[in-house]
Nucleic acid binder design. Sequence first.
DNA 1: CCCTGATTCGC
DNA 2: GCGAATCAGG
Length: 187
Amino acid sequence: MSEAGSGWSDERVELLKKLWSEGLSASQIATAMGGVTRNAVIGKVHRLGLSGRAKSTSGGAQKPRKSVSVAAPRAATTNARATASIPLVQGNTALAAVAVAPERPQGMPAPAAVAAVATSPAIAAPESQRVTIMELRENMCRWPMGDPTSADFCFCGNRTTPGIPYCTFHSRIAYQPPERRRDRRSN
DNA sequence: CCCTGATTCGC
DNA sequence: GCGAATCAGG
């Protein structure tokens, strides 16, 4: 255990592949996963032999500029690109949403548990700023909201305590004490 | 100046 | 293997 953000675990590599294949840029992926920089993501992508999605040398890559959303326009449906080289796991969108959560600290419950929390009926979460990846800063809560493959994907964005990836509210969800995690609230 | 991925190169 | 620094471009 005790894995921090670094170290490419299987889950992390899977998520990386998935997001990359869906058209997210390296910086988006890096920010979403937390604990890694876009360089790290790119480096890993290349080491995995996944490159070639975007054409090099240029800005053909920066379409997302027009709209800030994270969004993969048509995800895996349209382009044969998906079948080209990426296995692209299908049907686990929810898992992806969970996996997008940053490095899982020691106290973090299993992904499934978090998924349940994240998708539970929403009571009174503090109003989230609903910021996109581009607007996320270090001191903003990066609790994922929505489907990472969808255009409405964004983050909570509320203020965080330095060093903590989530706002106080989402920290309570993310760092549930083992004993008390029965009564969890959602965002 | 913002961004993109690609590559190099020290660790 | 990893990722910061750098490169090359939009």
